[in-house]
Amino acid sequence: MSLFNSLFGNSEEKKVTTSKINWIPLTNLDQLNEIVALSNEKPIAIFKHSTRCSISRFALKQFENEYALEDKVDAYFLDLIEYRDVSNEIANRFQVVHQSPQLLLIKNGQSVYDASHDAIDAGDLVERL
């Protein structure tokens, strides 16, 4: 392996990322109806992530490092570049201004908390449960 590859990585190598969060991929509009229904039984977190944004990537990693909610919340992950229609419907349905990155907490069918950028904090999420 060359010095360049050892410093910056090989573009052919696939990075394996692991998370202690059991993310549920949010990929279609029908899931929003499920989220509303499920949120009457258990809080739902939605993390809206832009795969093109370094700030979003940093916020996601920071959130994953701080997260300690295991069974208290079901966590959904939205790639808002790939599923922009779902992101737009989240803003409309839960009456929040679209941000990226953004974290929402859904309880009883409503957004009771949302944060974006550097305000995303797993500790704040715990306080709102």
Rank of each mutant, 00 (worst) to 15 (best):
F4A: 08
F4N: 02
N5A: 13
N5T: 11
F8W: 13
F8I: 01
G9C: 10
G9I: 08
G9K: 04
G9A: 11
N10M: 07
S11E: 07
S11V: 13
K14M: 11
K14R: 13
V16G: 12
T17E: 14
T17L: 10
T18Q: 05
T18R: 06
S19A: 10
I21W: 05
I21A: 02
N22M: 06
W23A: 12
W23R: 04
I24Y: 01
I24S: 04
I24F: 03
L26I: 00
L26V: 02
N28S: 12
N28R: 11
L29K: 09
D30H: 13
Q31G: 11
L32W: 03
L32F: 08
L32V: 06
E34Y: 15
L38E: 02
L38C: 06
S39K: 07
S39G: 07
N40C: 01
E41R: 08
E41W: 01
K42S: 05
P43Q: 12
I44S: 04
A45N: 09
I46P: 03
I46M: 03
F47E: 04
F47H: 10
F47N: 06
T51M: 07
R52V: 15
R52T: 13
R52F: 00
C53A: 03
S54T: 01
S54I: 00
I55V: 14
I55S: 13
S56Q: 04
S56P: 14
A59M: 10
L60S: 11
K61E: 13
Q62K: 15
Q62V: 14
E64C: 02
E64K: 12
Y67T: 03
Y67K: 00
A68G: 07
A68I: 05
L69V: 10
E70G: 04
E70H: 09
D71Q: 08
D71L: 00
K72F: 00
K72A: 04
A75M: 06
A75R: 02
Y76K: 03
D79R: 03
D79H: 13
L80R: 15
L80C: 14
I81F: 08
D85M: 15
D85K: 01
V86W: 15
V86M: 10
V86A: 04
V86L: 11
S87W: 15
N88S: 12
E89N: 03
E89P: 00
I90G: 09
N92E: 12
N92C: 07
N92T: 12
Q95E: 07
Q95K: 02
V96N: 15
V96G: 13
V96P: 15
V97D: 02
H98Y: 07
H98P: 00
H98S: 04
Q99M: 13
Q102V: 14
Q102K: 00
Q102R: 10
L104C: 02
L105E: 05
L105T: 08
I106F: 10
K107Q: 11
K107C: 09
N108L: 15
Q110M: 09
S111M: 10
S111C: 14
Y113Q: 05
Y113L: 00
D114G: 00
A115G: 09
S116I: 05
S116L: 06
S116E: 14
H117S: 08
H117A: 05
D118E: 11
D118N: 12
A119W: 09
A119Y: 10
I120C: 06
A122Y: 07
A122H: 11
A122F: 05
D124H: 05
L125R: 01
L125P: 00
V126T: 02
V126E: 02
V126P: 04
L129Y: 05
L129Q: 02
